[in-house]
Nucleic acid binder design. Structure first.
Lengths: 211, 211
DNA sequence: AGCGTAACCGAATGATCGGTCGGTACAAGA
DNA sequence: TCTTGTACCGACCGATCATTCGGTTACGCT
């Protein structure tokens, strides 16, 4: 392998692609990708506009890196044991719960992904990968419906879209307390846990009380 | 009433603000507001860039007119008899159904509204009005929960957000056949009806089969 | 026919866009 | 101490942005 790289933090005022990306995604999410200028980014990152080009090839690469990270997190769910073993309805519940969890854990990146419209090449690539994810989930819904475990009066494809529409809508209003860097691994974020539980309960049980 | 205005269609090659708006909203929705140039609009409308300024004050006014139309449609729901009379849970079901219906009837305008981020003054005005609508609905959910008609293990505010997140997500994938001008009043659009029914069933009953 | 005016246009404006360029500061290895 | 390479910068580039301006066209009305 390559020689161990010197720790990036040792160099003074040093930006990683990763840390630059974190700042970038925040700005993209507040002002929109098209509404964000490279000068906006340089101001937010505290370095000059031209310095950004030392780390990445351009604006579009920042977008591609960000949405790629979100997509990697989502696709990893489909390879988890809980998504591969058991009855389809149980595998579906696992995917629903984990999708909500990943969305909350990678909130800024998933937010950006969900707002992509397909204007540039990077955006169309992201849209294609999203479609593939939706397709895989739709198959799971269909399998659960074939088992008779899902209600028969709503088409599986339609149910999939509405279900994930509900999950994805979390990015429209949820903002973790103390900014995005809060919620360290293993600390058990209360608010996020409540949201995940609500999603699973509403998705499978509905709003109406049983009484 | 006012004197009958000479029919706009009588003048040759004449654009109404309304017809210009319809073209504009389509372009805004495909390319995004910030990603749309006035030249994009002029090309789509078939008139020159400067001619657009004869009808409206500028790009931002087009946005304000479009989202205003969507908001008027949504707020009108809250004044309907079905939203004012009966048990809260029944009024809520009426609002849910009608919101989905209005969203489908005014699809391009509501789509644009839901993508507004608050960059310009017009966008912030729209966000404020949206918040007010959400607030009024959240009160209805709380009232239904107080009656014991909604499940007690999900907070009303959270349920409201997820519920309307599901409804609003329709704009992400639904495209009426034959373009936006199809679906004349009273013709009973099959696909749209199925979506509305699915929304109401999933919202109140959930995915899981009763068996 | 002649007037008023709504609808329209091409060309230009300053501002801002994403991106490039030549060069400087500085830490690490020799 | 000298060399090398990373991180960074100010100044600049052509392109594109929303908007403006000075007209021209053609319709409705008298």
């Amino acid at each position: 392998m390559v020689a161990n790289t010197p720790p990036a933090a040792a160099r003074r005022d040093s930006y990683t692609v990763e840390s630059l990306l974190a700042v970038t995604v925040e700005v993209f999410n507040t002002r929109g990708y098209d509404g964000t200028s490279m000068e906006d980014l340089s101001r937010a990152a505290g370095i000059s506009k031209s310095s950004i080009y030392h780390h990445v090839r351009g604006k579009e690469e920042l977008l591609r890196l960000a949405v790629g990270r979100a997509l990697d997190g989502l696709f990893a769910i489909l390879d988890e044991p809980g998504a591969l073993e058991g009855r389809p309805v149980e595998r579906l519940e696992h995917v629903v719960r984990r999708t909500a969890e990943v969305l909350l854990a990678e909130l800024p990146y998933v937010t950006l992904l969900l707002r992509v419209r397909g204007n540039t090449a990077a955006e169309q690539w992201a849209l294609g990968r999203r479609r593939e994810f939706d397709h895989r989930v739709a198959e799971l819904v269909r399998a659960a419906a074939d088992d008779g475990d899902l209600r028969g009066d709503v088409a599986p494809r339609l149910a999939t879209r509405l279900l994930f529409g509900m999950i994805n809508s979390i990015v429209e209003w949820y903002h973790p307390v103390g900014g995005p860097q809060a919620g360290t691994p293993g600390d058990g974020d209360d608010a996020a846990d409540r949201i995940v539980e609500a999603v699973v309960r509403l998705a499978f049980g509905g709003l109406r009380s049983k009484g």
